[in-house]
């Protein structure tokens, strides 16, 4: 599978652990699950995927959703609004 260009945005604890708000990257990850695995190898993320949700292009998505060229992916840590 060829690599696709993706944008990843980080929030809250993931932003601190990645040390950045956003990045553009070439990835062979076919799904958000694979992408998070790739990023975990690069950054000291302590959150397991089981406690995260994922959004693609600013809508909630499944971990198995196929990623496409140009997608923007956000991994959502446990929320605490209100």
């Amino acid at each position: 599978m060829s690599a696709r260009r993706l944008t990843v945005q980080y929030y809250a604890l993931l932003r601190e652990q990645a040390g950045r708000r956003e990045e553009s990257l070439e990835s062979a990850a076919a799904t958000p699950r694979e992408l998070y695995g790739e990023l975990r190898a690069r950054y000291p993320f302590t959150l397991d995927p089981e406690v995260l949700r994922v959004a693609v292009n600013a809508e909630f998505a499944e971990w198995s959703q196929p990623l496409r060229e140009g997608d923007t992916v956000v991994f959502i840590p446990p929320v605490a609004g209100g």
Binding site: Y11, A12, P77, V79, A80, G81
Partner: peptide, 9 residues
């Protein structure tokens, strides 16, 4: 809002 919105504290 507390459970669903991507807001962090």
């Amino acid at each position: 809002v507390k459970h669903r919105l991507p807001i962090w504290k």
